[in-house]
Computed example of a mutant assay.
Amino acid sequence: MLLSIALIFLLGMSFGKIFQKFGLPPLLGMLLTGILLGPYMFNLLDTTILSISAELRQMALIIILVRAGLNLDIYDLKKVGRPAMLMCFVPACFEILGILLLGPKLLGLSLLDAAILGTVIAAVSPAVIVPRMLKLMEEGYGTNKSIPQMILAGASVDDVFVIVLFTTFTGLAQGGTIDMIQLVNIPIAIILGILVGIVVGLGLSQLFTKFHIRDTIKVILILSIAFLLVTLESWLEGIIGFSGLLAVMALGATIHQLKVDVATRLSLKFSKMWSGAEVLLFVLVGALINVDYAINAGLVAIMIVLGSLIFRIIGVYISLLKTNLNSKEKIFTAIAYTPKATVQAAIGGIPLAMGLASGEIVLTVAVISIVVTAPLGAILIDKTYHKLLVKD
């Protein structure tokens, strides 16, 4: 296991730097490292690491979402208003609609199987988007119109919305019926997650005011509570909807509202933690990629992924109607809403594990979506933001 950890960090950082030298996102090198080390290539990773891969990737995601919350100003988000809310579900709905139209024709799927595939593909990747939006906020690009903040918030809720739909459709495919309670759980999960995050953030802010606590201890406290909030989501599953990841982000945003200077210092510490967590996340995502599946799926799977992105982009433009964003800013927002990685890696294999007939093709297209959109989206964001957004 120690050897596996050493290989993940040493090779992940090395390949990341090599790709960066050629003007490409480091995550490409990290994904490649995972593919090479993973069970489908040279199989150099210990099975213990692979067995806890989902938990390790979730920890990395929590770190970047805490950092996002600590940088998120609610007043900036309020300035955006309606478009921020629409970005939470409209683009995802359009992408699912695209899969419903394309899946039966190109892959011979039933409408239900196409709906399952749509919910797997429709989620954007916070792991790709969040660090880039934070970079834009630090550099002042698009912040006057709160564009990075809108994308940050929308991407987080987008994932909750899609995962609940995925659970509903896979339950239906196993012989169940559409449970209205599950659909009602979508707004409940979002609202309850935000409320619990705010309450915890208020409590932590009071604690930091009354007692002198070193920033390092504050980081440990916040991270431990964030882990508990995400665990709470699994405990409440089947009882009431609750989004642990949204609670984590709301926690950080509440601290930012009440203790700006503390939030700024803590954000720097979480930024340093992300340097290691990023390597772990993307190398382990890469290790899930079955190259044979990707090759065998070929052109049809790529057409499905690219076709669904067109529908997503239409959804983004509809969400941005009657806003003060100009055409360049709308183009950038659409680009920023394309990368996929973490959710697809987390749920792409579930239909196959359930024994669904469409399981293999769902996993294959999920893998293709990661391989195509994660690097493409990251490159386009990195290369276009200074041309399409105004620096404040």
Rank of each mutant, 00 (worst) to 15 (best):
4 S>W: 12
8 I>Q: 03
12 G>L: 07
13 M>I: 15
18 I>Y: 03
18 I>Q: 03
18 I>N: 01
25 P>I: 04
28 L>A: 07
30 M>P: 03
32 L>C: 03
33 T>S: 04
35 I>G: 02
43 N>P: 05
44 L>F: 15
46 D>T: 00
49 I>S: 01
49 I>N: 00
52 I>Y: 13
55 E>K: 15
61 L>S: 11
62 I>W: 03
63 I>T: 12
64 I>F: 01
64 I>D: 00
75 Y>M: 12
76 D>Q: 10
101 L>C: 09
109 L>G: 04
113 D>K: 11
114 A>W: 07
114 A>E: 05
122 A>W: 00
123 A>D: 10
124 V>D: 05
138 E>C: 08
139 E>K: 12
140 G>D: 04
141 Y>W: 14
145 K>D: 01
150 M>V: 02
151 I>P: 04
151 I>V: 15
155 A>D: 01
160 V>N: 02
166 F>V: 11
172 L>Q: 00
175 G>H: 07
175 G>C: 07
176 G>I: 14
177 T>E: 14
189 A>K: 04
190 I>D: 01
193 G>L: 01
199 V>Y: 10
202 L>V: 13
205 S>R: 02
207 L>H: 00
207 L>W: 05
208 F>G: 04
212 H>A: 13
212 H>V: 14
213 I>D: 03
219 V>R: 11
221 L>S: 09
222 I>V: 14
230 V>D: 04
234 S>A: 14
235 W>V: 13
235 W>E: 12
238 G>K: 01
238 G>A: 05
246 L>F: 00
252 G>K: 00
257 Q>S: 15
258 L>E: 12
264 T>Y: 15
265 R>I: 13
265 R>F: 13
272 K>M: 15
287 A>F: 05
290 N>M: 08
291 V>S: 05
294 A>Q: 07
297 A>Q: 10
306 L>H: 00
313 I>T: 11
317 Y>V: 12
319 S>V: 10
322 K>S: 09
322 K>W: 09
323 T>P: 03
328 K>R: 13
328 K>D: 09
330 K>L: 01
330 K>H: 03
331 I>H: 00
333 T>W: 02
340 K>L: 09
343 V>F: 06
349 G>C: 11
353 A>C: 06
354 M>Y: 15
354 M>L: 15
356 L>I: 12
359 G>P: 07
362 V>W: 06
364 T>S: 15
365 V>H: 10
367 V>R: 02
368 I>T: 05
376 L>D: 04
380 L>E: 03
382 D>S: 06
382 D>W: 00
382 D>Y: 03
383 K>A: 07
385 Y>F: 10
387 K>L: 13
391 K>M: 06
392 D>E: 15
